[in-house]
């Protein structure tokens, strides 16, 4: 079982460093090994898919990107939704995006965690209500993008122990690695047409590791960032003027 003591420093003398200056055997060799390992494992593989069910025309309207909040586990991270919103809104080809909280407030209490529609049919029912559709048109939202999914850490292995050596200098030793997998799906709902116009998905996976000889060197596979970038680009392509 993996054991990570990085968050709570283990105050225990470490035999290699006891009684004198720290010896750092093989430092260049270890650096070379980690660079080689990173080249082999740090990369992130991404897969994107798109199913279009109807043409889209954003015009002068805006998009809102929401996540589903009713789950007790595996809820989509707020910062992933914020990342996708920023990604879709950013750049020269950025699209207008209304912040999710503004939308939820404007339509309160119809999109609260316990009251928000859970299926596309429910969504159609809610948006079909005159009070709601009028408000959504008032705030200029044409497309709702509903994101589901999460990033999970798995296959953790190795150990990393940190200690304070006799000279008072903290030091870590060991090797830790894990897999990260992101799997997100976005459903696009056209408020005007009252229908689901497409589904986009973004999957990413990668291996992260932290070798440590005195100083830990984290090589983190930025899986969620990669999934965010890909999904943002997909949404732009799907709803943008060239769609």
């Amino acid at each position: 079982m993996a054991h990570h003591t990085g968050r709570h420093a283990l105050i225990r003398p470490f035999s290699l460093a006891r009684g004198g200056p720290l010896a750092l055997p093989g430092k260049p060799a270890i650096a070379l090994i980690t660079v080689a390992l990173c080249a082999a494992g740090c990369g992130v593989q991404t897969t994107v898919q798109e199913v279009r069910q109807a043409q889209t025309d954003l015009g002068d309207d805006a998009i809102v990107i929401l996540s589903r909040k009713h789950k007790t586990q595996g809820e989509t991270e707020d910062d992933f939704v914020a990342c996708v919103s920023a990604g879709v809104n950013g750049g020269n080809d950025g699209l207008p995006v209304l912040p999710a909280r503004d939308f939820v407030d404007a339509t309160f209490p119809w999109f609260e965690p316990r009251t928000a529609p859970r299926t596309m049919d429910d969504l159609a029912g809610v948006i079909g209500r005159p009070l709601i559709s009028e408000r959504i048109q008032e705030i200029g939202v044409r497309y709702l993008v509903w994101i589901e999914g999460t990033t999970q850490r798995s296959d953790e292995s190795g150990t990393l122990q940190c200690t304070v050596v006799s000279g008072g200098i903290p030091a870590c030793f060991g090797f830790l690695s894990w897999e990260n997998g992101s799997n997100y799906e976005a459903s696009v709902w056209d408020v005007y047409q009252g229908m689901n116009v497409g589904t986009l998905s973004s999957e990413a996976s990668g291996t992260s590791f932290v070798p440590a000889v005195v100083v830990p060197l984290p090589f983190i596979a930025r899986v969620r960032q990669a999934a965010c970038t890909k999904l943002s680009d997909q949404i732009k392509g799907f709803l943008g003027p060239t769609a």
């Binding site: 420093a9 105050i11 304070v164 000279g167 008072g168 200098i169 903290p170």
Partner: peptide
Amino acid sequence: RRLARLAA
């Protein structure tokens, strides 16, 4: 070293 010890 003093700083590192204090930090630890």
